[in-house]
Design a protein around this nucleic acid. Structure first.
Lengths: 113, 113
DNA sequence: CGAATACTGATCCATAAGGCTAAGTATCAC
DNA sequence: GTGATACTTAGCCTTATGGATCAGTATTCG
């Protein structure tokens, strides 16, 4: 299994958690500090940090520490991987749909055969 | 946490596994039996079935048993959930980008203030 | 009918995931 | 300098995940 696939695993795994999805939505509005991000969640900070580390590991966010404050920002580029996978998936089934449709039409219109 | 979020968890979790992604790509070409699907994987069939059950549970495929053969087909509708989540995410950060851009332009062109 | 085929159910295992608490370090504000 | 603030590290726990094996059921084929 290659690098691309491993990265996809990690990205989808990151999105498979509601806390992490919510964090991404919040960061979509702009960079934010860890403690600000953590406020809406009824969770211990070390637990929340695990989510942050996971998101950073998957490339969906990057963090930067300045003094005692760590600021998180979203990495929109990484969403392109999801989108390209989805596009590839759609290309496969739409290719099949097109062939099926032409077959059906030909069947109903014998002149097309 | 609501139904929608739980379903998203399941869908992204389903996609977080390379075997399951490969299965979806194969099913994108058309319905297929379990044993045909399982052929490319060096995996015991009961283990493979777990992946199938997971995919079915997340709504990404549906299966139907006829005699001793169980046929799997993709549920393309379910991909719409992923896409709508991505769209929502993009809307958030693009909304921010638009505001940032207008702010930058206004700053460089004082007449726009 | 018996053998082959296509699953199915149950159990086990190692590892990962998603939380917790306790204790610590580093920075900041007064 | 001291107390408050913002993380950080480490260890623990329960549950889930992604595989395995074994044994079974149901259907199909010769």
């Amino acid at each position: 299994m290659d690098q691309y696939s491993t990265r996809l695993d990690g990205i989808f795994q990151a999105l498979a958690d509601p806390t992490r999805r919510a964090v991404l939505m919040e960061l979509g509005k702009g960079p934010s500090s860890i403690s600000d991000l953590a406020k809406p969640f009824d969770m211990a900070l070390p637990s929340f940090m695990k989510h942050i580390h996971f998101l950073e590991g998957s490339g969906l966010i990057r963090t930067q520490k300045q003094g005692r404050v760590r600021t998180c920002a979203i990495e929109t580029k990484q969403f392109a991987m999801i989108e390209s996978w989805l596009s590839a998936q759609r290309a496969v089934w739409e290719g099949r749909n097109d062939r099926l449709e032409r077959f059906v039409l030909a069947e109903h219109d014998p002149e097309k055969l």
